[in-house]
Measured scan of single mutants.
Amino acid sequence: ATNIVSKVKWYNSTKNFGFIEQDNGGKDVFVHKSAVDAAGLHSLEEGQDVIFDLEEKQGKAYAVNLRIK
């Protein structure tokens, strides 16, 4: 899926990962520091509106092509 609009559930800049809620009630989506860095960001804030693409690797959903709404 591409261009999903949602909100950051939480992000831990010390552990370099977090999760984004899915508005459709699906499972929370993992977001890694590499996606945050690629977006030119230093961190994410809880409740922040984001747009991302969903990529599945080894049966897990990852946020990629992250951008701020």
Results as ranks from 00 to 15, higher is better:
residue 18 G to C: 03
residue 58 Q to F: 14
residue 34 S to D: 07
residue 38 A to L: 10
residue 67 R to T: 05
residue 22 Q to F: 15
residue 36 V to L: 15
residue 28 D to P: 07
residue 12 N to C: 12
residue 55 E to C: 14
residue 9 K to Q: 03
residue 58 Q to S: 12
residue 56 E to D: 08
residue 55 E to R: 11
residue 28 D to A: 06
residue 24 N to D: 11
residue 56 E to M: 14
residue 67 R to P: 03
residue 39 A to T: 06
residue 1 A to N: 13
residue 40 G to Y: 06
residue 25 G to Q: 09
residue 58 Q to C: 15
residue 29 V to I: 13
residue 5 V to H: 14
residue 69 K to Y: 13
residue 56 E to H: 14
residue 13 S to W: 10
residue 7 K to S: 05
residue 43 S to F: 13
residue 64 V to M: 06
residue 2 T to G: 07
residue 6 S to K: 04
residue 53 D to N: 06
residue 20 I to T: 02
residue 10 W to D: 01
residue 14 T to G: 11
residue 63 A to C: 04
residue 63 A to Q: 03
residue 26 G to M: 12
residue 28 D to S: 06
residue 20 I to S: 00
residue 67 R to L: 05
residue 45 E to H: 15
residue 7 K to I: 07
residue 26 G to H: 10
residue 57 K to P: 03
residue 12 N to G: 04
residue 56 E to G: 07
residue 42 H to C: 14
residue 11 Y to T: 00
residue 57 K to T: 10
residue 62 Y to G: 05
residue 3 N to R: 08
residue 17 F to P: 00
residue 29 V to H: 08
residue 42 H to E: 12
residue 1 A to R: 15
residue 60 K to E: 06
residue 43 S to E: 11
residue 29 V to E: 00
residue 26 G to T: 09
residue 54 L to Q: 04
residue 40 G to Q: 07
residue 18 G to R: 00
residue 38 A to M: 10
residue 13 S to P: 14
residue 52 F to A: 01
residue 61 A to L: 14
residue 17 F to M: 05
residue 4 I to V: 11
residue 16 N to Q: 13
residue 58 Q to H: 14
residue 57 K to S: 12
residue 4 I to G: 06
residue 23 D to Y: 15
residue 55 E to L: 13
residue 29 V to S: 03
residue 2 T to R: 14
residue 25 G to T: 08
residue 8 V to K: 00
residue 17 F to H: 06
residue 27 K to D: 09
residue 66 L to P: 01
residue 27 K to A: 11
residue 8 V to W: 00
residue 19 F to P: 02
residue 66 L to T: 01
residue 38 A to V: 08
residue 62 Y to M: 10
residue 62 Y to T: 08
residue 1 A to G: 12
residue 42 H to Y: 12
residue 60 K to V: 08
residue 25 G to L: 09
residue 40 G to I: 04
residue 6 S to V: 04
residue 32 H to K: 03
residue 8 V to N: 01
residue 64 V to F: 05
residue 38 A to K: 12
residue 50 V to L: 10
residue 27 K to C: 09
residue 64 V to C: 07
residue 40 G to R: 07
residue 32 H to N: 05
residue 25 G to A: 09
residue 57 K to E: 08
residue 11 Y to N: 02
residue 38 A to W: 07
residue 20 I to R: 00
residue 68 I to K: 06
residue 39 A to H: 03
residue 56 E to C: 14
residue 30 F to Y: 07
residue 58 Q to L: 12
residue 40 G to S: 06
residue 4 I to M: 10
residue 24 N to I: 10
residue 33 K to H: 09
residue 16 N to W: 08
residue 19 F to Y: 06
residue 46 E to S: 15
residue 29 V to A: 05
residue 19 F to I: 04
residue 6 S to A: 15
residue 30 F to C: 03
residue 28 D to K: 04
residue 10 W to I: 03
residue 16 N to E: 09
residue 28 D to C: 06
residue 22 Q to T: 13
residue 55 E to G: 06
residue 49 D to E: 15
residue 41 L to N: 03
residue 4 I to Q: 08
residue 36 V to R: 01
residue 60 K to T: 07
residue 49 D to V: 15
residue 42 H to W: 11
residue 6 S to H: 05
residue 2 T to S: 11
residue 13 S to M: 11
residue 44 L to K: 00
residue 60 K to F: 11
residue 35 A to M: 07
residue 50 V to C: 03
residue 4 I to E: 04
residue 45 E to L: 13
residue 52 F to Y: 12
residue 21 E to S: 14
residue 48 Q to L: 10
residue 40 G to L: 06
residue 2 T to Q: 12
residue 20 I to K: 00
residue 21 E to Y: 15
residue 2 T to P: 07
residue 7 K to Y: 06
residue 26 G to A: 11
residue 33 K to P: 02
residue 19 F to A: 02
residue 58 Q to R: 12
residue 6 S to W: 08
residue 15 K to I: 11
residue 11 Y to W: 10
residue 44 L to M: 05
residue 11 Y to G: 01
residue 5 V to P: 09
residue 4 I to A: 06
residue 55 E to V: 15
residue 59 G to D: 08
residue 68 I to E: 07
residue 62 Y to H: 10
residue 55 E to H: 11
residue 27 K to Q: 10
residue 65 N to Y: 03
residue 57 K to Y: 13
residue 66 L to G: 00
residue 67 R to V: 08
residue 58 Q to G: 14
residue 42 H to A: 13
residue 13 S to H: 12
residue 64 V to L: 04
residue 58 Q to K: 12
residue 45 E to K: 14
residue 64 V to H: 05
residue 24 N to F: 11
